[in-house]
């Protein structure tokens, strides 16, 4: 009886150890791969046309969903903020509420989540499918480095697009908040803008938000290209890799956001 129990416990411990080693090994693989991408990206800088094409697919194609969600997030923030603030008679502070929450948190985070599911999954699927149909090996045969030709432009396009998308998201959100509070409800327009401008500091709020979105861009695209390149070359493998990209990068955004917020906004300037 005791022997069986010990064996079972040992098996459980073994499984935990195996998983830990496996995930650390994957993390090592991913870091190695990203380092490789960075080292080989001079080819894509020498041929900016490659990056332009990827910016089109990652950035421009995500524009509609980013703008529409930004607008609606702003509308809802305006409504809810007004609902609560008017109880305290400070409904003119709704501009501050909308702008600060968008610029500091919601802009980078929600735009990042949308970008991960819209563009990150597409990157993973494209690279994974190229691998499954042996296009990457064919490139290797023709002495074209697939990392430099396919992966690096996608990486840089994502890193470049993400801050721009987050900024557009925030602007649309502020516009949505303006629409619902000033145009529909009738909060005073002057105090809406002036309170907002008094509270939002360029260096402290906006630049920190942009830094956040840059970090998210790096993380999302790094996860997306690694998962694509690492995908088992089967239909199932590609679909699983796409799912993993969305799940992992969403979790990474949320975790990283907390860490960045803890460093950036601690109530002391």
């Amino acid at each position: 009886m005791d022997v069986i129990l010990i064996k079972q416990t040992a098996a459980v411990i073994q499984r935990i150890g195996h998983r830990t080693i496996n995930s650390i090994w994957r993390l090592g693989c991913a870091s190695h791969f990203i380092l490789l991408v960075l080292l080989k990206s001079w080819t894509s800088f020498a041929r900016p046309r490659l990056i332009t094409r990827e910016i089109y697919y990652a950035g421009v194609m995500s524009l509609v969903i980013i703008l529409v969600s930004g607008l609606f997030v702003g509308l809802v923030l305006g409504l809810q903020g007004y609902e609560t603030l008017q109880k305290f008679g400070s409904e003119s502070a709704v501009g501050t509420l909308v702008a600060l929450s968008l610029v500091r948190e919601l802009g980078p985070v929600v735009a990042g989540l949308l970008f991960a599911s819209r563009a990150g999954s597409a990157m993973t699927a494209e690279i994974g499918l190229m691998k499954a149909t042996e296009q990457l090996s064919a490139m290797g045969m023709m002495a074209v480095d697939p990392v430099a030709r396919v992966v690096a432009p996608k990486f840089w396009a994502g890193v470049f697009s993400m801050p721009l998308l987050a900024a557009m998201f925030s602007v649309m959100g502020v516009f949505g908040g303006y629409l619902v509070t000033v145009v529909v409800i009738g909060v005073d327009e002057g105090s809406f803008w002036s309170q907002m401008q008094n509270a939002v500091d360029f260096r402290y709020d906006i630049v920190n938000g942009v830094i956040k979105s840059c970090c998210f861009g790096v993380v999302i695209t790094a996860i997306a290209v690694f998962e694509g390149f690492d995908a088992p070359p089967t239909a199932e493998g590609v679909s699983m890799a796409t799912t993993r990209t969305v799940v992992t990068s969403s979790l990474a955004i949320l975790g990283l956001d907390f860490v960045l917020t803890a460093f950036m906004f601690r109530g002391v300037a």
Binding site: V60, S170, V200
Partner: peptide, 28 residues
């Protein structure tokens, strides 16, 4: 494609400018 990427980049930079000038306190 070049046209749309140009539009995208300009809109992004425009958004950053709006954030700085209209939302933030860069004017003052």
């Amino acid at each position: 494609m070049d046209f749309w990427v140009g539009v995208f980049v300009m809109a992004g930079i425009g958004a950053l400018l709006i954030l700085g000038l209209k939302v933030g306190n860069l004017t003052s």
